[in-house]
Write a protein that binds this DNA or RNA. Structure first.
Lengths: 208, 208
DNA sequence: TCACTTTTTTACCATTTGGTAAAGACACGA
DNA sequence: TCGTGTCTTTACCAAATGGTAAAAAAGTGA
């Protein structure tokens, strides 16, 4: 067998685990900055502190690394949305979601940019995931929000566009950081500002 | 002289104008999809229907094309923000801005993606522009909004984050179109939905 | 310690990529 | 129709890129 690394037969060794993580971390850095086409194996290798052939010992190729990263991302990316509890207090649940999303954007900006890059490029490698994983969750949570509106617990608005606006406003702080860094003086750049503003924005929208 | 095309000496001929536009249009298509590093001159040449050396007859190189595109973009990109009138009705002015931005995102998605790509990559070629052109305008309009709040004409909130959220929500419809296409059924994908939702969102935020 | 497996390195390779040189084709006024 | 400047093509290049083969080195269990 060419390389055992590809998930198949037996348990991965200590060193295998370490290096795969090293590579994926380096790849995340590079792919999230330059997109799939713009990233090179040499960049990833250098960032990981390994040689290019060594990287190809652990992964089948450039695309394999990218796909692995995307699969991994899809899990963590959807988690905050799943945590929304239909029987909780609607406004609290939605604001909680906003905060989890904002925290994620600020703590995992590379993941956010990786996602943004993939979508910007037309989601060539991710569309199946979007249909299979995101779409059902999106529909389900849209229905939950709709039910809250029907029950008069929150003001009526389009649930889909509501979710879009939550994604847009939170991810903006990760994806457009290069812009906000220019526009906001350093002392105004803390999380508090964004967090307080988004609270205000969505509380006003949702309060009946 | 190697090529007269570089803006210097004399007036550009008919064919020169046509081909430069052809090239810039093709480059916009390619750069906006793949980012600077991911785009290739061959792709641009093919898209433009010209040979690669022919393209290099009109532009100094790959970077020259990208920079030209970015300069061009900066103008049209800032226009909607400039049109906000300090002595008009605040809510009407701000909603007008939201609509102009949304229209632009929907009519010029390639420009929006070009911008997003550049910022995602850390704005390596655009940071000077941001500081020189966007920052002053951002500060000025933030002050205008602040004054409206001081006068009690709109509810108080952070003007900077307000502008961020307008940018985020409107550009989302261009930059993340690949995602919304998966999530929204075709008949719900018209502009009306987004437009009505954003109206609601920002009216509620701004009404005192 | 020794055989055997896993990991890493060295040396390549074909293709792609940004870019150039120079010869041709073309337009157009005199 | 001819000459001169504009535009386009052909034929290249050196470097970068994704990837491979095979040998060398490092581990590892008996």
């Amino acid at each position: 067998m060419t390389h055992t690394a590809t998930s198949s037969t037996k348990a991965p060794s200590r060193i295998q685990q370490r290096n795969r993580i090293l590579i994926l971390d380096a790849a995340l850095e590079v792919f999230s900055r330059h997109g799939y086409r713009g990233a090179t194996l040499d960049q990833i290798a250098k960032q990981a502190g390994l040689s290019k052939p060594n990287i190809l010992y652990y992964f089948g190729g450039k695309e394999d690394i990218h796909v692995t990263l995307l699969n991994q991302l899809m899990k963590t990316w959807l988690d905050p949305l799943k945590e929304m509890n239909p029987s909780g207090d609607p406004i609290k649940e939605l604001l909680g979601y906003v905060h989890r999303k904002l925290d994620m954007a600020l703590e995992l900006p590379r993941e956010s940019r990786l996602f943004a890059n993939e979508i910007l490029q037309g989601a060539p490698r991710m569309r199946p995931h979007l249909s299979a994983d995101l779409k059902p969750l999106f529909d389900e949570q849209s229905r939950v929000i709709s039910n809250w509106m029907d029950a008069g617990k929150i003001a009526r608005c389009d649930p889909g566009h509501l979710l879009f606006s939550i994604w847009a406003t939170t991810q903006h702080y990760a994806d457009f950081a290069a812009q906000t860094e220019v526009l906001l003086p350093e002392d105004e750049r803390r999380q508090d500002g964004a967090s307080a503003y988004l609270d205000q924005l969505f509380i006003k929208l949702l309060t009946p």
